[in-house]
Simulated scan of single mutants.
Amino acid sequence: MDVSPKRIYHTLRQFQTLAEIERESVEFTSLSLAERVWYWRRGFLSRSAVLYDFERYGHEDYLTDYQRYIKTRGINGRFGYALDNKLMLYGLLSRFSARLPDLYGIVDGGTFRSISIAGERGPTRPAIEWAADLEAGETAVVKWVIGGGGHSVLLLTRTDGGYRVNGDRISRTELRERFAAMDDYIVTGFSQQAEYADTIYSEATNTVRAVTMWDTERDEPFLARAVHRIGTDETKPMDNWSQGALGALIDPGTGELGEAVTYPDDGERRWRTDHPDTGTRIEGVEIPGWESIREGLLDVADSIPYLPYVGWDLVVTGRGEFEIIEANNYPGMKSLQVHGPLCADERVERFYRDHGVR
């Protein structure tokens, strides 16, 4: 058991995070104190009473909030840092460069340093000059090298008349100021989603969150769960589920989408078969070439056995094709388990037990 000062520090920080989330949950649910204590004693925050269907499934097969925040963080050990750092991810998966968006460079303090996954280096110059060289209509992704959840992500588009950031017009002066305030941001190409995702909702990039785990008995990775996040007018151009996007469970065998659910920020889960803004059908839609996507992702996971637990964010770009836009060291559970308990799957339960989580 790791009892190093660093490990103790991070554990205490995670307990602090749990306490902060619980404070925020006071207005999220109408539970009495006795009811809250019941959930706390079983490892759940109060919000889980709304997020998860305990009446239908019970509570034993859910990964608890305590287990997620305190115990899963250490599954990948010291190697997990490679997933937390978006630039290091390119080196980690260099063999699968076709599965990654193009890497353009780094923005730091208003300066753009050109780099590539092949190790080639271009000129260093003011970031505003690099932006001016983008072709009209071209979009680049500018995001902080650490962090997830769609935070600190800018979709920069060059227009005939200037620039847009996350869909909003911005002047050259304003963009220069934004660049000057950036500290360690990477710049990549934009992953264009496939037609089926564009048809459901075109004003956001609708991503797949897929979690892979390592089966020690078979010595191979497996897909534990996958959900399709779908943006809305409330979240565009992002698809952050906790900010108002939809989440649909993906059938692991067929790639068919189930009903979509919204984050219950008002204390109630709402399920939909279609998109609230476009009216386009969601339930029953099949991701084209899903089997190839699933097997392609497992090939990537198989190449890094020292990272047995990964939450992948994918953009399906065509039939059987995808790009990995992010990987997560200890993925969140809300958008996954709102569709049912993860540990009802014997392989998932065994994985967590093998790693001291359950």
Rank of each mutant, 00 (worst) to 15 (best):
I8Q: 08
V107D: 08
L87G: 03
A140Y: 02
L314W: 10
I200E: 05
L307G: 00
R68L: 13
E129H: 12
E291H: 14
D299I: 07
G189W: 14
R36K: 15
R347F: 08
N240W: 01
R41Y: 04
I186E: 13
F15C: 09
I21R: 14
R42E: 00
A344C: 03
G137T: 12
L63H: 10
A49T: 14
P288M: 08
G332E: 10
E120V: 13
I287F: 00
E27V: 08
H151W: 07
V142G: 01
Y57E: 09
R36L: 08
T317N: 06
D102I: 03
E60I: 11
R178F: 01
G77P: 07
I186D: 08
R178N: 07
A245C: 02
D65I: 10
R270P: 00
V208Q: 05
T188N: 05
G296I: 03
G148S: 11
A194T: 07
A180P: 04
M333K: 14
F28T: 02
S114R: 10
M213Q: 13
R319P: 08
D302A: 15
T139W: 00
H151G: 13
I21C: 03
Y263I: 00
H339G: 03
R350H: 08
E120P: 06
T273V: 15
H59G: 04
R78Y: 09
A180K: 11
Q192T: 10
R47S: 10
R319S: 14
R169H: 01
Y309G: 01
L93V: 13
S152Q: 14
T273G: 09
E138V: 07
R176E: 13
E283H: 13
A34F: 08
L92D: 11
P101V: 04
K6C: 04
E220A: 15
R164D: 02
F322P: 01
Y185P: 02
T139N: 02
D184T: 12
I200G: 02
M1S: 05
R99C: 12
A131M: 11
R169L: 06
E326S: 06
G77Q: 05
R358F: 09
A181R: 06
G318M: 02
W130A: 12
E283W: 06
I324K: 11
